[in-house]
Write a protein that binds this DNA or RNA. Structure first.
Lengths: 169, 169
DNA sequence: TAATAACCTATAGAATTAGTAGGTTATAAA
DNA sequence: TTTATAACCTACTAATTCTATAGGTTATTA
């Protein structure tokens, strides 16, 4: 008996097989917090930990926190543009806090880096948007649940300042 | 003076321009809750609302909740396989609850449809995973903050059952 | 036997993330 | 004045994921 299979098709399906096996073994875990936000928070905490207000270089944070320097550059730039950091160019330059860590709420940081705190736009306070697929907000079973989630998350993030999360060694 | 520009390149950059303009006008809002989960919750609530335990057809839910029927099929199938629903084939068939709505916690529903409730894998109770980029969990400034967020979210989702979210008309 | 509705497999477009590449500009020290 | 430094800027891309669609097969009921 001879079984003839097109080699290309075999290759393709073998590849699919491997992908599916990988998926079932290392099941994908959805990341709610983007790396950008995570790195941004880490960088802010790193800068806040240094009690002197001398500029901190991207390269130092990058090494210490194991973050791609180029990626980090873009994040710190954004944090500067949104008013969390100041910067200085040239030797001895870097980024520094322009407000007290105690006055920087984590809600503000996350809103700038990540966007809305709500899990669906239709319950977002700062980024509200009607769900285009939703027949009615009033009868929506998800809506009120997500309002509760939003409020409890807001409470936590509003209770934590940059000083709080930088405190622990 | 003659300016010569390759027509293809012009087309390509014009397209990019449009994309960037669109991005800056309709700024992207990150959706934390996937449509799959949202639709799944809506479908469960829809089924729970019907006091009789007769099977509900995918087509009925699809129309009423404005959800793509094929997409919904795959979601309900998953909910059946994970033990939330029973099904019946053929005419008069459909999906039905196999537990009381009062006993179905939203934590369970979301964990099956969405995956972890935590915003980072390193604070997930059911899907724990070390962050590969993180030098140390103990000194991580994001870690403890995300534990607080996780706990407050768990509290809300654990306090709500399917009966609760189906209650409101 | 015919209609129905769940079940199954494969595929695909769009959007987004997480970077990389390759520069330019401003500042400080030499 | 030159040189090194570090922020700043623009463009691109590979990989991943989401949200479906297409086109069936199987089981059940009328």
């Amino acid at each position: 008996m001879v079984i003839s299979v097109d080699a290309y098709l075999l290759d393709v399906s073998a590849e699919k097989l491997i992908i599916n096996v990988k998926k079932s073994i290392f099941e994908y875990i959805r990341n709610m917090l983007s790396k950008k936000t995570k790195y941004g928070i880490k960088a802010l905490a790193f800068i806040a930990k240094k009690s002197d207000r001398k500029p901190v270089q991207t390269s130092e944070i990058s090494k210490s926190e194991n973050i791609s320097q180029k990626f980090l550059e873009s994040i710190l730039l954004e944090l500067r543009k949104s008013g969390f950091l100041g910067s200085k160019k040239g030797k001895g330059g870097g980024y520094y806090l322009i407000k007290e860590p105690e006055s920087i709420l984590m809600t503000a940081v996350i809103r700038v880096l990540e966007g809305p705190i709500a899990m669906v736009p239709c319950v977002s306070l700062n980024y509200y948007e009607k769900c285009d697929d939703c027949p009615s907000e009033e009868t929506c079973s998800v809506h009120s649940l997500m309002i509760q989630v939003r409020d409890s998350t807001l409470k936590v993030l509003g209770d934590n300042t940059l000083a709080d999360i930088s405190a622990k060694k």
